[in-house]
Computed example of a mutant assay.
Amino acid sequence: MGDAIEWAGDPVSFRPATGEHTDEVLSVLDEAAGWLGGRGIRQWPDRFPAAWVADAIGRGETWLVDVGDKTAATVTLDWADALWADVGGTAGYVHRLAVRRWARGLGGVVLGWAEDRARERGVDALRLDCVAHNRSLRDYYEGRGFAHRGDARWLGLPGQPPDEVPVLWMSRYERPLAAR
């Protein structure tokens, strides 16, 4: 899948997650959720239920990112998102991008990889979202060339029981893809 990627002098590789990797995916997500929660950012549940990632893993849309021989991150790249139903065009959608704390800074590499996959698929844009109150993440996306495409109302955090569902405002970001 393209040129060799390095980060901090070590090779970076992307492998599709399978059902056998569910615990590994959840471990990365839970570490990131704990870190966010410790900073008062409520973007994800404290712990991800396995059922919440199972469909994307089954469709081959969830990836594990290795640096050397260690799992450093996970990301889901899919091709539809209900949060964007009111926006036209074709896109790849980045979801559940999480990086282990020891690999801080790897997110840009993962976003670059996702952009390359989306471009290979021939879509118009790469899109993602985050809770509107996460200003530091919004600044990060804007610094990476993603344009704010408005905020949208969404019910609940992923995996929450229906009786505990809050209303969230999600900031949507898009990066148009030009052919390289």
Rank of each mutant, 00 (worst) to 15 (best):
G68Y: 05
L137P: 10
L97Y: 00
L157K: 04
R138W: 03
D69S: 11
G19S: 07
R121E: 02
A103G: 11
L29I: 08
V94L: 02
E20K: 07
A17V: 01
W84R: 00
A178N: 03
V75S: 01
E120R: 09
L157P: 02
D46I: 13
V53D: 10
D81R: 10
A50R: 12
D30I: 11
A32V: 13
D81Q: 11
R100Y: 07
D23K: 05
G150H: 06
P166G: 14
R149E: 14
D30W: 11
Q160V: 15
E174C: 12
P45R: 04
D23F: 02
V131N: 07
T18E: 10
Q160D: 15
A125F: 01
P16E: 01
A80P: 00
V65K: 06
W52N: 15
Q160G: 14
G105W: 03
P161S: 15
L157V: 15
D151C: 12
R144L: 14
L106A: 08
A147V: 09
P49G: 13
A118V: 00
E20I: 03
A152Y: 01
E24C: 07
W169C: 13
G88K: 05
V123K: 02
D163F: 09
R96V: 07
W84N: 02
W169M: 15
G19N: 06
A50M: 06
M170K: 14
V67Q: 09
P11G: 04
R138Y: 03
T71H: 03
E61G: 06
Y93S: 02
E24G: 04
L83N: 11
D116L: 00
A147E: 09
E61C: 13
G150T: 07
A82H: 14
P161T: 15
G108W: 00
V94W: 03
A72R: 09
A54I: 04
E61Q: 14
E31F: 04
